[in-house]
Simulated assay, not measured.
Amino acid sequence: MNSIMIALNKIFPMFNINMPLHTVCDLIRKLRPIPNWKIVCWKKPMTGRVKLNTDGSYLHDSGKAGIGGIIRNEFGDLLMAFAVSVVCNSNNMAEILATSYGVDLCLNWVSWN
């Protein structure tokens, strides 16, 4: 039990190590995240348009990063998808690279067709 109290004190410096166990349990219960959910629905693009959905990911510990995306037409049909390893230094940069890469693919796709 003492190691739990020490760990809590390291994470929360204002935490009193000498609190009774029931008080500690009440505090931990209050720290739980409150579940928050919503229904997410993909919507088709307008007639004559395509829709690009992208994602980027960066793992700070390893420095590895990747981007991916999918392009669909007005009927929801897959036109193109991509997944690429990239070099960057943050999640935000990975997201930007994914969007940029996807937009370039969309523009090139238009010129191919």
Rank of each mutant, 00 (worst) to 15 (best):
P33I: 14
C106D: 04
S57E: 08
Y58R: 01
A65V: 02
A81S: 08
C41N: 09
I96M: 13
C41P: 00
V40D: 01
K10I: 11
A83N: 09
N18Q: 11
N89H: 12
L52I: 08
T54L: 05
G63K: 05
A7P: 00
S3G: 01
L105K: 06
I96P: 00
A98G: 04
P20V: 09
D77L: 10
V40S: 06
N36Q: 15
L107T: 09
R49G: 01
F15P: 01
D26T: 15
A81I: 01
P45K: 04
L31G: 03
A94P: 03
V50G: 07
A7D: 03
P35K: 15
A65N: 02
V103I: 15
N2Q: 13
K38I: 11
L107R: 06
K44F: 04
W37P: 00
F15G: 00
F12H: 08
F12V: 10
R72W: 05
L31Q: 15
C25K: 14
V87D: 02
A94Y: 09
K43S: 07
L52N: 02
W37K: 10
K64T: 11
H60A: 15
S90T: 12
Y101W: 06
L59K: 13
V84R: 11
N16W: 03
E95W: 03
I70F: 02
